[in-house]
């Protein structure tokens, strides 16, 4: 597997990524070591349950800042995201194919 495995339970695709993928159903309160990667902290504690295949933040991401996986931008934070928080459509949005934004702009 490409990437960096965190305590056998999560995967960071590229060291600079700001989100990791759960390799199992992980429970709230689970602590994972991120000392070996580019995070600004040693450990991340999950603040909610993270289902297999879903993502959590390994550092704070401010609203509007890029969310990074595969060493690439996969979208923007639509509100501030704390370390250990689930990252999905409720707090991360695509920047592409957004005809709705164009339509809003046209109506403004």
């Amino acid at each position: 597997m490409k990437g960096i495995v965190l305590d056998d339970r999560a995967l960071l695709m590229v060291e600079s990524d700001t989100v990791a993928t759960a390799l199992d159903d992980l429970e709230r309160g689970t602590e994972l070591s991120v000392a070996a990667v580019g995070s600004d902290r040693d450990r991340v504690t999950l603040t909610e349950d993270i289902a297999f295949g879903h993502k959590f933040a390994i550092e704070r991401i401010d609203a509007g800042d890029p969310v990074e996986k595969y060493g690439e931008r996969i979208g923007s934070a639509s509100r501030p995201i704390e370390p250990g928080e689930w990252v999905h459509t409720h707090n991360c949005e695509s920047d592409r194919g957004r005809g709705d934004r164009t339509a809003e702009g046209a109506n403004a």
Partner: peptide
């Protein structure tokens, strides 16, 4: 864009989202 369509409604699909994929960028990569 031309149709004022928000690609987020269809991409990723509901099943993809359930499987953990959040955005079309992530799915594409």
């Amino acid at each position: 864009d031309m149709m004022g369509v928000d690609l987020r409604e269809s991409q990723p699909s509901p099943g993809n989202k359930e499987g953990g994929l959040t955005t079309i960028e992530e799915k594409s990569l």
